[in-house]
Design a binder for these strands. Structure first.
Length: 804
DNA sequence: GTGCGTGCCCTACC
DNA sequence: ACCGGTAGGGCACGCAC
């Protein structure tokens, strides 16, 4: 028979002594389908004299087939023996070959079976195919089809990628649980909510009177978990999604199922939820793709989100413009009244609703990444950017006839991590002042364009100077790179081109898919440089990373020189951009000057105008009279502010300090002087001294970055974290610790001894907030105008200050 | 006992 | 462990005086 089919999830299974792929997906008429195919399993043996080796290798009985091929390995032509055997025999066979000769290079054993299958079969995720095959009978594959809960199980005979790739909207189930305890499995699950198309439900065993229609009351926890399982089966989604569900909801469900001796099976092949061994843990449900939105947001979205945390509440507020339902957890007990529980149900349901909407919002991005990277959705949503870069490279190696480099093992990683850091970007020290009439130029994707323009990669790195090679001076001497384009720079060049193409298409006719596609290529391009310097990368090359940084320093410094020579005054520069004052030059002249600079740049390097600015301010460092780097504020001719590095944009400063500084920067940039800001600042200080500022503006937030016990320095937020843990609150890595600094009877109490939880009793310490928050945030701004805040505060109000 | 350098720690910039 | 280096700045700590 012939069907139109779209693959969503991949899995492998051993039947007898053979390995098969199970490809879960949908048919064009919406049927649930599983296509069965033989797995494709092989690895390469690279040898200078393959003929001699071949005879010995062929004696190994597990090997099914060998081919001697001309391949490339790290750009160099090699003779390779492609050794085919069953997947579960690969390491046996490989070991036997190693025994023949220890030095023999074996490669691609470490490429995962699904990746290999996708590459070799060409059956890619979320791409429509015409599949020819037979319906598997109950006798095929030792009855495999009986164990798979789908409408159709097909033995694949032939597949053809369809020209007409129509859109596919997956059926999604979003879910969320609420529990008695935060620790995984410790208390009961109180309720499970889930949302799908036209369906909203809360399952619970709390028996309240007259519940809302979406509430379904179960007998007990066991019944509730079983009902959830039944609902998943009935809804039969393509994707099940949650928020931090890898780390909480899924492990909790498993723990409670185990505790209650429930055989919880969610997969379409009746398998249990599978958890990865490493950290962070991820949870897989076979056939139904489990997507944890948090992980994907962390890798693909967080750089665009200027949020204090990536909590569902904040992310939903930012992306969906709607937040979570507020609720006070502490008061909820089994004995609480029905009204309290009603609220709790509503809250729980709302989380699933938000998760569902968030999924729909992010879906174009996930889909585009999946299509570009060609890895299954499950792994795409869990890899970091370096993993995505690597997958992209691996899926494109066949075009270059390349054998993949091996993944570094433990010892190799240790060596790499121990290597000295290389010199990074150049940052120009600014001269503190208020400037007028500015412009910023920056290099478009500077590091990526350097990698492409100078062919910087491991395989193109030369051992010594060759005629006609690229060369660059680094802190470890000169390095040389071949001019024959390597596959890594080539692929990156393509990514940059595609990004440009889709960006243009997006401009011409905007839609979400184009936006997602353009963005995915942008992220991928930007991650390339980091990838080559990352110790876990197959194509790790510190020399290439160091050279990229060295070229960047060279070009930004040259551009600064040229700009100063061109009659401008460069104020500041960081990595790939420079700010300068126009002096008497016009915008038009400046754009002409930009053209000239561009005509002198090599390869695909390009300098752009970022914007013209009406005013800009640079301040001194707190220590010393020098201008502070990475700290400035600008206003453009439309009145839009660009604030970088200032306390205003730092979450570890209290809102009052941030707000006051923000207002002052705003006023100064708009008005061109400090006069009215000074009046404002004095007023705030007066209010603070009179304790007229609400405590909520004085809460300091700092993230817990590691387990409490690992801290060598016990700083205020660590003390607070301990307090919270003692109170039975969930204190985990990544938690944003909130506290304020209170007055103390002790004369010389440390800050940490004065730190209190926001709802703890105590008056805030006026002296601390004045001297450690407000003044530091505004002092060096006024200093630019020769105004000394300390003198003003002390001079006028010395007596009052003395009290603190 | 104070003052200062140093290291830890967090969070920003690009 | 899950992309890099550069930088500012608070806080705790320990040594010098």
């Amino acid at each position: 028979m012939k069907i139109k089919f779209i693959p969503l999830d991949y899995d492998s299974v051993n039947i007898g002594d053979k390995t098969y792929m199970k490809i879960f997906g949908r048919t064009s008429d919406g049927k649930d389908c599983c296509v069965i195919d033989r797995a494709i399993s092989f690895f390469y043996v690279i040898s200078k004299k393959p003929e001699r080796l071949l005879k010995k290798i062929q004696k190994i009985k597990e090997i099914k087939k060998v081919e001697v091929l001309d391949k490339n390995y790290l750009e160099k032509p090699v003779k390779a023996i492609k050794v085919f055997c069953e997947h579960n025999k690969i390491s046996d066979v490989s070991d036997k070959i190693k025994k023949i000769d220890k030095t023999i290079m074996r490669r691609e054993k470490d490429i995962n079976l699904t990746t290999k299958y996708i590459i070799e079969s060409g059956i890619k995720p979320f791409c429509w195919y015409e599949i020819n095959g037979e319906i598997a009978s109950e006798f095929d594959f030792k009855g495999l089809s009986n164990s798979i809960n789908v409408d159709l199980v097909i033995k694949l005979e032939k597949s053809l990628e369809l020209k007409n790739q129509k859109e596919f909207s997956p059926k999604v189930l979003a879910f969320d649980i609420e529990t008695e305890e935060f620790e995984i499995g410790k208390g009961k699950i109180l309720m499970i909510s889930f949302v799908s198309d036209n369906l909203k439900k809360v399952l619970t065993f709390k028996k309240i009177k007259n519940p809302q229609s979406y509430v379904e009351i179960c007998n007990d926890e066991v019944d509730m978990i079983k009902k959830f399982q039944e609902y998943v089966k009935k809804i039969n989604p393509d994707i099940i999604t949650g928020y931090f569900s890898d780390g909480f909801d899924m492990p909790y469900l498993r723990a409670r199922a185990e505790k209650n001796k429930i055989d919880l099976k969610i997969g379409k092949d009746n398998s249990r939820i599978l958890f990865s061994k490493g950290r962070p843990v991820n949870a897989r449900t076979k056939g139904i793709v489990h997507v944890d939105l948090l992980k994907f947001i962390q890798t693909a979205y967080s750089q665009y989100l200027q949020l204090e945390t990536l909590s569902l509440n904040e992310v939903a507020k930012e992306l969906l413009k709607e937040g979570k339902k507020e609720i006070n957890f502490k008061n909820i007990k089994q004995t609480s009244g029905d009204k309290v529980w009603e609220n709790f149900f509503e809250y729980n349901l709302n989380d699933s609703v938000l998760t569902y909407k968030l999924f729909q919002k992010l879906w174009p991005d996930m889909l585009e990444f999946t299509k570009i990277i060609q890895e299954p959705l499950f792994s795409v949503t869990r890899q970091g950017m370096s993993g995505l870069v690597e997958s992209y490279i691996i899926h494109n190696l066949n075009r270059f006839n390349e054998i993949a480099e091996k993944r570094p093992i433990h010892d190799e990683i240790a060596i790499r991590r121990a290597r000295k850091k290389y010199e990074g970007a150049f940052v120009l020290q600014p001269k503190p002042a208020l400037y007028e009439n500015l412009a910023i130029f920056d290099f478009m994707s500077m590091y990526s364009s350097i990698i492409v323009s100078f062919n910087l990669s491991g395989p193109t790195l030369l051992k010594k100077k060759e005629k006609n090679s690229f060369e660059i001076n680094t802190e470890n001497g000169k390095l040389y790179f071949s001019k024959k384009q390597g596959f890594i720079p080539k692929l990156l060049g393509e990514i940059i081109e595609l990004r440009k193409k889709y960006k243009q298409e997006l401009k011409n006719k905007p839609d979400n898919i184009k936006k997602a596609r353009s963005n995915a290529f942008k992220l991928l391009a930007n991650a390339y440089y980091g990838y080559q310097g990352f110790f876990g990368a197959r194509y790790y090359c510190l020399e290439a990373a160091a050279s990229t940084a060295a070229f960047a320093r060279k070009f930004i410094k040259e551009t600064i020189e040229k700009t100063n020579h061109g009659g401008y005054n460069v104020i500041y520069a960081d990595t790939d951009g420079l700010a300068f004052s126009l002096n008497k030059k016009t915008k038009k002249q400046t754009l002409e000057f930009l053209k000239k600079l561009n005509s002198e740049l090599p390869g695909i390097m390009e300098l752009e105008l970022e914007d013209f600015y009406k005013r800009g301010i640079w301040v001194t460092k707190r220590t010393g009279e020098f201008g502070a780097k990475k700290k400035y504020a600008l206003i453009n001719y439309k009145g839009k502010l660009k604030i970088r590095g200032f306390e205003t944009v730092r979450r570890d400063w209290c809102p009052l300090a941030r707000e006051v500084q923000n207002k002052i920067l705003n006023k100064i940039l708009k008005e061109g002087n400090e006069k009215s800001s000074l009046v404002y600042a004095k007023d705030i200080i007066r209010k603070l001294k009179k304790r007229e500022i609400e405590k909520e503006f004085l809460i300091i937030k700092t993230q817990l970055k590691k387990p409490i016990s690992e801290y060598k320095t016990i700083s205020p937020h660590v003390v607070i974290a301990k307090k919270m843990k003692d109170q039975g609150l969930p204190v985990d890595i990544g938690l944003l610790i909130q506290y304020f600094i209170a007055e103390s009877k002790l004369k010389k109490a440390l800050v940490r001894e004065r730190a209190k939880l926001p709802d703890e009793k105590g008056e805030y310490d006026i002296g601390y907030y004045l001297n450690n928050q407000i003044l530091p945030a505004i002092e060096n701004i006024f200093e630019v105008f020769g105004v000394n805040m300390k003198v003003i505060v002390d001079g006028h109000e010395q007596k009052k200050l003395g009290e603190f």
